[in-house]
Design a protein around this nucleic acid. Structure first.
Lengths: 153, 153
DNA sequence: TGTCCTATTTTGAACTATTCAAAAGAAGGA
DNA sequence: TCCTTCTTTTGAATAGTTCAAAATAGGACA
């Protein structure tokens, strides 16, 4: 099923902006709004930033996109919904990798005590330092998320 | 061991501002910088907002505080570090609860494939709707994180 | 195929959370 | 007590995101 159909199924109109945002995130998962704007503008040079935010919010609320917020980072978006995968972010360069769920198929959806909450999503965010950053070749592309010289405790 | 000692052990000077921030978060875990400022000012009416951010950043970098970022929320802080507990946030009212780790003692620290990253922290963020919000008494204290009328998919 | 209604996008502005930089002030070792 | 250095303050700037109203364009229906 393509994205036009998915949009219609969710009661949403099919617009070029929405399709372009979905295509951009298909192509570059874990993108910030900023990056999505840049990506979308390669096809639609005149989209407004506001529209991209609108689309990201609408589609996230409808479950067509997934959003997560690593510390020191704008919100990131991806099209992989419905599977229970997680994320590993490098605290030095900000790079994000998908991590398949280790414990089974939908493990983290069952907390020990849910405090009466009806849990819908479990976001697991691993934070560490990636190979490149540890080997000194830190922050090639992305700006460091934490100052490199932070003294160890 | 009290907080003065902990600060010294981490090579940090003991200041009233730092002690007050730690006391505020001891008292009200999961607070935003904003709330910490308000709380701290009950003792030290003249602390600057900037100082609170300084303290929060320094102590988080040194491992004396833990920070996490739910979507649609400023960063939240707590003094519970070193145990592997998680969080459940209500997507309607924003309320946060601690959730003990279900799978064992430090389960989530071992992703199936770490992509070469040296994992240091695993943050698990459950998102759902709390009892109060489901029973219609939505958003008593806190502003809704998502518009209440968002039509289901 | 054209019309109309409403959802969506755009425009323009505002706001919140957070950071930057330089100067003033205080912790704590000598 | 003094001096050095770490912290806090002051003042301003920035990034990320949202708000509101006007313009535009899907797509149901005639």
């Amino acid at each position: 099923m393509d994205y036009s159909d998915r949009l219609r199924d969710h009661g949403l109109r099919v617009t070029r902006q929405r399709l372009a945002v979905l295509a951009a995130l298909e192509d570059r998962p874990h993108s910030s709004a900023d990056i999505v704007v840049a990506e979308v503008r390669r096809d639609l040079p005149d989209v407004s930033i506001q529209s991209v935010y609108n689309v990201l919010n609408d589609l996230t609320a409808r479950g067509l996109l997934r959003r997560f917020s690593p510390p020191h980072s704008p919100a990131l978006y991806e099209t992989r919904v419905d599977d229970n995968h997680h994320h590993a972010v490098c605290t030095s360069c900000g790079r994000v990798e998908d991590v398949e769920c280790a414990v089974g198929h939908a493990p983290c959806l069952t907390p020990s005590d849910d405090h009466g909450m009806a849990i819908q999503i479990a976001d697991v965010l691993y934070q560490g330092v990636c190979e490149d950053c540890r080997s000194g070749a830190a922050g090639i592309a992305a700006a460091p998320v934490l100052p490199q010289g932070t003294p160890p405790k």
